[in-house]
């Protein structure tokens, strides 16, 4: 589904990703772990198409489509979704307006009919219930005045509404207490119920989210490169040993 080849990315003349290789197949859940500043968020943002990154070399292929040539909205229409580490507050646009516009644009791109107001409302109600959200948030402005936990929950709500093919979750666990973490993980696992045309990438600093979203593969991104890959046991090993353990191994890998 997703193939990243030798990706080198600079931000303001500084090389952040120094040759990332990653392959994610349909049906798989991958976790990308790593210490702060290792390039995790850069990778997530580049997949989603954020501007301000210089792609020095390398390729990103999504279902045989060259992603790097597409603006973010086209990527979204192809089914790529980024759950933001820091969801943006947009006063003046309600959550309902955002979702309705987004869903209908994506449906239009897929050649499907737009949802009418009733269909849309009942779909929203159904998903909100799953995430234990109250209906009043629909008329509230996007993330405006939301607590950290509410913002992250709102990201997962949007994800469930948009039903992406490739979901990238950028540190969705940061700033969450254990109850919120469980609700968010539960949301992701709902998406996981049907993985027939879907893959999920979970970017995280800590292992604890992976207790609830159990990955098929774990990669360690360190200093702009994936230095180690393994199964879920790798996450536990990192938890026990810390990232320092990799720093010493860094030189022998690759």
């Amino acid at each position: 589904m997703l193939k990243i080849k030798d990706l080198v990315v600079k931000v303001e003349d500084k090389e952040i990703l120094k040759g990332v290789n990653l392959e994610v197949n349909t049906g798989e859940v991958h976790a990308i772990m790593g210490p702060n500043g290792s390039g995790k968020s850069t990778l997530a943002n580049v997949i989603a198409g954020k501007e301000g990154y210089e792609i020095v070399s390398g390729e990103i292929w999504y279902k045989d489509i060259n992603l790097l040539e597409l603006p973010p909205e086209e990527r979204a229409k192809l089914g790529i979704f980024l759950a933001f580490q820091y969801p943006v507050e947009i006063p003046g646009i309600s959550n309902a307006t955002l979702l309705k516009t987004a869903i209908n644009e994506i449906r239009k791109a897929r050649g499907e009919e737009e949802l009418d107001a009733m269909e849309f409302l009942s779909l929203m109600r159904e998903k909100m219930k799953l995430l234990e959200m109250t209906e009043e948030m629909l008329s509230r402005s996007v993330n405006a005045g939301f607590s950290g936990g509410e913002k992250k929950r709102n990201e997962i709500f949007q994800m469930l509404m948009l039903e992406p093919k490739l979901a990238v979750l950028d540190e969705t666990d940061s700033g969450l207490d254990i109850d919120a973490l469980k609700i968010v993980a539960n949301g992701v696992n709902l998406l996981r119920q049907d993985m027939s045309d879907r893959a999920i990438i979970v970017v995280t600093h800590y292992q604890r989210l992976l207790n609830y979203i159990i990955p098929d593969f774990v990669h360690v991104l360190y200093n702009g490169r994936i230095v180690k890959s393994g199964n879920k046991e790798l996450a536990l090993e990192l938890e026990a040993k810390g990232y320092d353990w990799l720093k010493s191994e860094d030189k022998v890998t690759v």
Binding site: P72, A76, E105
Partner: peptide
């Protein structure tokens, strides 16, 4: 720019996203 990217990442065209943001400002 961050708001613009946020909306575009949800599948909303750049033009539409700009228009929404201006409308939000007015709202």
């Amino acid at each position: 720019e961050d708001s613009l990217f946020y909306l575009r990442s949800r599948g909303i065209d750049e033009k539409n996203a700009r228009s929404l943001l201006v409308n939000a400002f007015a709202n």
